[in-house]
Design a binder for these strands. Structure first.
Lengths: 226, 226
DNA sequence: CGGACTTTGTTCCTGCGTTCACAAGCGGTT
DNA sequence: AACCGCTTGTGAACGCAGGAACAAAGTCCG
């Protein structure tokens, strides 16, 4: 494995990475449908983005299309999967088996994208032993042990807000370097640890704000109430 | 209600609106703890953002702090709530009562932020009649009726991917103008309708990508494998 | 075999978001 | 009453993402 195998694109913007994951999902659907090639326009439409932006995103991986024809679906799919690191299955732990945690653990879409939950943890003894998505729930005291056993580096936090920070601290101490946090608090982590905050009520509030603004049309200096 | 009541800030960037919702949540916690005032530094730390950025965000609402002192917690909370439109309760419908839909419908955090689910809809007759979060599940055929009854303009879609687009079309035809979509497809909507896409597996894949890049340190021209 | 059409890859440019840094203003203190 | 320190609010610069337009390249057809 020479380090000069990839001749381009040292750094890929985070916004582009997120879109690449979407492209990969669309391509998987096209491959299942038996499609051999796609144009940037069709792919962009299915992904909900601008065609030129899609081509720029893909160009970070180096040239991977054929001019005048389009992109070969299986080859592009393979290339995206390698770039995103989907080829190797990644072990994750999920802490907090409430409604949301159970929904995530039972979602089959993660397994097909290279993620496997090797540990489902909860503090409630009544939930320990339940089997969700083929994995048994273990007590949260096993956190460090599970992380060490499987070399876990990615964790999903779906605990109540008051305990999210302490769970996060334990995860980081155990060696986890990447966390998706659904609890509505901003986690404090040392440098080198990535946190992605997913806040469901914030999404709704942004929509409500845009919705309320839509109701008020400003024409010149005059406010028109429809 | 004169239109010159608010002397500033005609347009608020969407990124700022999302952060304002976070500030509002932090402020509510501080108010419950009995705090009377906060500095931008403390508030920014709790929200996980830059202090200067926080002050700029708040400045879109006009001056609302006291120099040398900080921000009055109750007053700022009230101001944010008004700006985000939390004062008036907003009626929403939720389509797709699977694991994720049930988790969202049962989440008490929405109710305290001005949202009430007036309709929970599902296509599965076995789920119809279940009571989640105090509301009974109704058949998806009632969609148009529920939207019209309550004047709903906001909808949450948690259906399986194959039916998300058709559900979306029905929602838009019924008058819904804002949609949060959890199904892993890009919804096609006419102009004037806002869609916020929440893709849980994309979040994980972005983390996995950053995680895999963290494993490779590039020093000068040399690649160092730890 | 050559030309024209189609589609990619790239470059430029515009606009937005974020960050830094400084001036303005208020409370506390002497 | 005046000074000093602290915090807000704002102005400017930087960097980045997004979009449009153009050039390169390959295929299909005459």
């Amino acid at each position: 494995m020479s380090e000069s195998r990839e001749p381009r694109a040292r750094v890929i913007p985070e916004a582009t990475v997120a879109r690449l994951a979407v492209y990969l999902r669309v391509l998987t659907g096209l491959a299942d449908a038996g499609r051999a090639s796609v144009s940037s326009g069709e792919l962009a439409s299915a992904a909900g983005v601008n065609p030129a932006g899609l081509r720029k995103d893909l160009s970070y991986l180096g040239p991977c299309g054929v001019r005048g024809v389009g992109y070969a679906v299986p080859a592009l799919r393979e290339r995206l999967a390698r770039a995103l690191g989907v080829e190797q299955s990644r072990s994750c732990v999920l802490v907090g088996m409430g409604n949301l945690g159970s929904a995530l653990a039972g979602y089959a879409g993660f397994g097909t994208r290279g993620f496997s939950f090797v540990g489902l943890l909860d503090a409630d003894p009544a939930r320990v032993g339940d089997v969700v998505g083929g994995t048994a729930v273990r007590p949260v005291d096993d956190l460090e042990q599970v992380v060490a056993e499987h070399g876990v580096t990615i964790a999903v936090v779906t605990t109540p807000a008051p305990v999210a920070q302490s769970v996060c601290d334990r995860l980081v101490d155990a060696g986890v370097r990447s966390i998706v946090n659904f609890a509505p608090v901003a986690l404090q982590v040392p440098a080198g640890v990535d946190v992605r905050q997913v806040d469901l009520s914030v999404e709704l509030q942004v929509l409500a704000f845009l919705d309320q603004q839509k109701g008020v049309q400003v024409v010149g200096e005059q406010v028109v109430l429809p």
